[in-house]
Write a protein that binds this DNA or RNA. Sequence first.
DNA 1: AATGAATGAGACTTCATTCAT
DNA 2: TATGAATGAAGTCTCATTCAT
Lengths: 228, 228, 228, 228
Amino acid sequence: MSSQASHPEAGPVPPPKWQRRKEERPSEILAAAAETFVEHGYAATKLDEVARRAGVTKGTLYIYFEGKEALFKAVVRENIVPLLLSAEQSLGDEGAPADQLLRDLMYNWWRGMNAAHLGGIPKLVMSESANFPELAQIWFDEVVVRGRELFGQVLRRGIARGTFRPVDVDLAVRVFLAPVLMAAIWKHSMVACEKDGFPVEDYLRISLDILLRGLQVPAAAGTEKRDA
Amino acid sequence: MSSQASHPEAGPVPPPKWQRRKEERPSEILAAAAETFVEHGYAATKLDEVARRAGVTKGTLYIYFEGKEALFKAVVRENIVPLLLSAEQSLGDEGAPADQLLRDLMYNWWRGMNAAHLGGIPKLVMSESANFPELAQIWFDEVVVRGRELFGQVLRRGIARGTFRPVDVDLAVRVFLAPVLMAAIWKHSMVACEKDGFPVEDYLRISLDILLRGLQVPAAAGTEKRDA
Amino acid sequence: MSSQASHPEAGPVPPPKWQRRKEERPSEILAAAAETFVEHGYAATKLDEVARRAGVTKGTLYIYFEGKEALFKAVVRENIVPLLLSAEQSLGDEGAPADQLLRDLMYNWWRGMNAAHLGGIPKLVMSESANFPELAQIWFDEVVVRGRELFGQVLRRGIARGTFRPVDVDLAVRVFLAPVLMAAIWKHSMVACEKDGFPVEDYLRISLDILLRGLQVPAAAGTEKRDA
Amino acid sequence: MSSQASHPEAGPVPPPKWQRRKEERPSEILAAAAETFVEHGYAATKLDEVARRAGVTKGTLYIYFEGKEALFKAVVRENIVPLLLSAEQSLGDEGAPADQLLRDLMYNWWRGMNAAHLGGIPKLVMSESANFPELAQIWFDEVVVRGRELFGQVLRRGIARGTFRPVDVDLAVRVFLAPVLMAAIWKHSMVACEKDGFPVEDYLRISLDILLRGLQVPAAAGTEKRDA
DNA sequence: AATGAATGAGACTTCATTCAT
DNA sequence: TATGAATGAAGTCTCATTCAT
C-alpha cells in the first residue's frame, strides 16, 4: 500500500517549478485579455484567442475569472487606478512654472501610459461605453474627472500666478485633456492608416506649443490684446 | 349597416400586415443600422434590433443588403461622402479672415454632422478599425486626409497673410481636427457619464479661443495684423 | 351604381391575347419544375429557379399549385402515366418474334422517354424515395410493376414458343428492366463525368445482344430455332 | 438518514452528461452522417438528425468537421477507397475460369459493400451529382472507371482464352457493372415499395446466369469449351 | 490546477409562403 | 391574373461555458 503512484506526499515536496506561474497567471491573462479586447472590442473577442495569447487554454480562464464579462471588467478596473496614478506621477516638481507642469503632465502621462500598455483602455472604454455603462461611469469618475482636476489645479495655479490669462478653467481642462485622449485613441485605431505613422510626440509638442501660447497673458502694455 | 354583401365596414379595417415601401426601405434600414452599430459596435449589434428599429423583419434586411457585413459597410460608406461634404460646406466666405474661417469650419462642421446624424460614424470607424481595416482606410483617406487638407489650406493662407505665426502646418492641422473628432466621439460615448452633459459648443468655442490665440503672431514689434 | 370602375363586363370582351398563355402556364411550370427537381433534387430546388425557368415569378407558381410539395408531386404524377404509356407503345407488332419484341420494348421505350423528357423521373423518384415514400410507391406500382408485367408477357410468350429457354420470369424481368433504368439514371447523373459521353444506344444494343443470347435455348441437338 | 455530511451514496450516481471519446467520434459521426445523407439526400439532411444519430449535439459536429458540406464530402471521400478495395478484393483466385471470376466479382463485391455499409454511396453520389460535380467526378474516376477496368480485365482474359465470345469489351463491362449498381441503388430507394422485398442475391444470380450464357461462344462446331 | 471535448443558447441566413399592389 | 416585397419558420454555425479526465 505504501508505494503507490498516486501518493502526493510520498516523497519530499517536489520542486514547485511550474507552481511559480500560478501567481503570475491572472496578470498574464489580464494582459492578454486587455490586448485582445482593445484590438477587437468586447463582443468580437474570442476567449480562445485570449487564452492562446496568455499561453493557456480556454478552461483555465475560468479558474481565475468567472467568465468573459468578469474578465472584461477586470481588465478595465485593473487599469483604471494605474491610469490615474500614471497621470498623477506625471506632474513634475510642483514648484515649477505652470506651463512646465502642463508640459510634464501631458508628455509624461502619455509616456507612462504607453510604458504600461495602458493606452488602449480609453479607446476600449469609449467603444464599449453603451454596452457597459457602469464601467464607463467608473472610468469617467476615476480617470476623466480626476484628470480634469489635475489639469485644473495646474491651470488655476498658473492663472493665480499670472502665468496664464484667466479662462474658464472647467472648460479649458477639457481642451488640455483632449490631445492625450486623442493620441491614445488614434494610436489604437487609425494609426495603421497613416502612411508615415503618426508622430504622437510631435503632435503633443505642437499641441502644447499652441495651447500654452493661447493661454499666455496678453502683452501687458495694452498694445497687443484682442479679446477684451 | 344596410344590406351590403361582405360587410366592408363590419369592424374596423384591420391594419395591413405590411406595406410596400421599396423606395424608402434602404435608407430606413441604413439609418436604423447606423444608430445600432454606433451604439453597440459591429459584433454586438443584432440584426433583430436593426430590423425592429427599421420597422421590418429580419428577412427584409436581406432583400436590400447581402448580410450583416454588407450592411455595416454600407452604413460607413454611405456616410463618408456626406461627412466630407459637410466639412467642405462648413467653410464660410473664402475671403473672410483665416481665423474666422477656422471658426466656421469647426463650428459648422460640428453642426452639420449633428444635423445629419453623421457624428457617430467617426466613433464607429475607430472602434472597428482593427476589425475592418479597409473600411478604416477609406474613411481615413476620404475624411481625415481631406479634412486635414481643408484645415491646412486655411492655416497656410493665414500664415501667408501674416494672420498666423508660422507653424508646422502638417502637425498643426491635427491639432485643429482633434476637437471636432473628440466632440463626436465623446457625444457617442462618455456623454451619458457627465452629470451636467457635455457642453460641446462651449468646448469648441474655448478650444478655438485658445488655439487661435496660440497661433497669433508674437507681438514682436506691434506689427500684429489681421489679414484683410 | 352603373358606371363603376370595377365593371368586369363593362365593354366588349378585350382580346385575350395574353390569356392564351393561361392554359399553357401549368404545363410550362411543370416542365420547368421537372427539370429543376431532376437536376437538384427536391430540397435543393428553389422555387425562384423554377419560376425563372418557367418565365414567371415566384408568386405565379402559387396560382397554379398549392406549394412546393404539390408542385413536386404533380411533376411526378403527371409523368407516371406517360412513362408507362411510352413503354406500352414501345411494343412493336405483337405477332413479331419475342426477341424482336424485347428489342423494340427496350429501345423504343428509351427513345420515347427521351423524346418526352421523361428520363429524369426515375432518377428523381429514386433519389427522393425516402422523403416521399407514397410517391415512390405510386411510381413503383404504375411504372415498375407494370413494366415488369410488360417484359414478363413477352418473356413468357417467348418461353412458351420455345424462343427462350425456361427461366424464372419474375426475376428475369428485373434483368431486362435494369438497362433502361440504368441508362435513365446515368444520363441524369454521371454522364457529365464521362470524358467521351455515354453511348446509351450502344449500351442498350450490347445489353440486348448479351441478354438475348443468354436466353437462347441451349443448342440441344442443333435444333435451335426462333419462334415463328 | 444517519449523520453523514454530504451523503456520498445518497442516491444512484447520476450518469455523466457526456463522455470523452475523441478517438471514436469522427467515425461515429461519419457513419451517422452517411446513413442520413443516403436516406434523405444532402439538402434534406438536418445536422440535428445526424447529431442525434451519432449520439452527440450539433455543436460537436463542428469540432470534427468544418460544416455540413465538409461532412458530406468526407462521407463520400472516406467511402470511395473502401468501395474500390471491396471490389478488388472480390476477385477470387486469379487462376480460376473467367466466368467464375465474374461471378465472384459481382457477388462478393455486393456482399462486401453491404457488410461495410458502402451500398448507399452510389445512390448518394448519383442523386447529388449535379450539386457536387467534383465529388461525382472523383467517385467516377475511382470507382466506376476502375471497376470497369476490373471487369474489363476478366472479360478480356476470358475472350483471349476462348471462354467468352469476342465482344466490345468497353461496352460489355458496363453491362456487367450495371447489376451491382442497380442493386445498390434499388436497395436504398425502391426496396420499401416491394411487397416481398427485393431478392438481391437471386437477382444477381440470374443476371449472371443470363449474362454469362450470353457471352458463351456459339456452339458453332461443338468446340464450346471452358478455359482451364 | 489544467485541459479540451462537449454542450446549448443564440446569432446569422435562407427560402417557401403570403399578400398588398 | 401577375407581381415581388415582406414575412417568419427553420436551418447552419459560433462560441461562452461546463465538466469529465
